[in-house]
Amino acid sequence: WIARINAAVRAYGLNYSTFINGLKKAGIELDRKILADMAVRDPQAFEQVVNKVKEALQV
């Protein structure tokens, strides 16, 4: 799951650890299995999560 998430978030200019930190700051409580599945099956929803994380990180 970690490898999938890392590959997906790198397309948005983040790395895995920064993304996970941003999830916590944004108050998003999705587990890694769901995030990895979302990255593959629903990229639009995953992009929305990434955008919320970037807002929380102020990137």
Rank of each mutant, 00 (worst) to 15 (best):
W1D: 15
W1H: 15
I2H: 01
I2R: 13
I2S: 00
A3E: 14
A3M: 03
A3V: 05
A3I: 06
A3N: 07
A3W: 04
R4K: 14
R4W: 06
I5F: 04
I5V: 04
N6T: 14
N6C: 14
A7D: 15
A7F: 07
A7L: 06
A7K: 14
A8Y: 04
A8R: 03
A8S: 04
A8E: 03
V9K: 00
V9F: 01
V9I: 06
V9Q: 00
R10L: 12
R10I: 05
R10W: 05
A11S: 06
A11G: 12
A11P: 15
A11T: 12
A11K: 14
A11R: 12
Y12K: 03
Y12G: 02
Y12V: 03
G13Y: 03
G13I: 01
L14Q: 01
L14C: 04
L14F: 06
L14K: 00
N15L: 04
N15E: 04
N15V: 09
Y16R: 01
Y16F: 04
Y16M: 01
S17L: 13
S17D: 12
S17P: 08
T18E: 10
T18N: 07
F19Y: 02
F19R: 00
F19A: 01
F19P: 00
I20K: 09
I20A: 09
N21Q: 12
N21L: 13
N21Y: 12
G22M: 03
L23G: 02
L23R: 01
L23C: 10
L23M: 10
K24T: 06
K24L: 12
K25I: 14
K25R: 08
K25T: 09
A26E: 04
A26Q: 06
A26G: 07
G27M: 10
G27Y: 05
G27C: 06
I28F: 07
E29Q: 09
E29T: 08
E29L: 13
E29S: 12
E29P: 14
E29C: 14
L30V: 07
L30M: 15
L30T: 13
D31K: 14
D31L: 13
D31P: 12
D31A: 15
D31Y: 10
R32Q: 15
R32A: 14
K33S: 12
K33G: 09
K33L: 06
I34L: 13
I34Q: 05
I34R: 11
I34P: 05
L35I: 14
L35R: 01
L35Y: 05
A36I: 09
A36V: 07
A36K: 03
A36L: 11
D37L: 08
D37C: 12
D37V: 08
D37Y: 09
D37E: 10
D37F: 11
M38A: 03
M38R: 02
M38E: 02
M38K: 03
A39F: 06
A39H: 05
A39W: 05
V40N: 10
R41Q: 14
D42G: 04
D42F: 10
D42H: 13
D42K: 11
D42S: 11
P43I: 10
P43G: 06
P43C: 07
Q44A: 13
Q44S: 07
Q44P: 12
Q44F: 12
Q44R: 08
Q44K: 14
Q44L: 09
A45K: 12
A45T: 10
F46N: 00
E47K: 11
E47P: 01
E47T: 07
E47I: 06
E47G: 05
Q48G: 10
Q48K: 11
Q48N: 12
V49S: 02
V49M: 09
V50W: 01
N51F: 15
N51I: 14
N51T: 11
N51E: 11
N51W: 13
N51R: 09
K52A: 05
K52V: 10
K52R: 14
V53N: 00
V53R: 01
V53K: 00
K54Y: 04
K54A: 04
K54W: 08
E55V: 14
E55I: 12
E55H: 06
E55Y: 09
E55M: 08
A56D: 04
A56P: 02
A56Q: 10
A56K: 08
Q58V: 12
Q58A: 14
V59I: 07
V59G: 09
V59F: 13
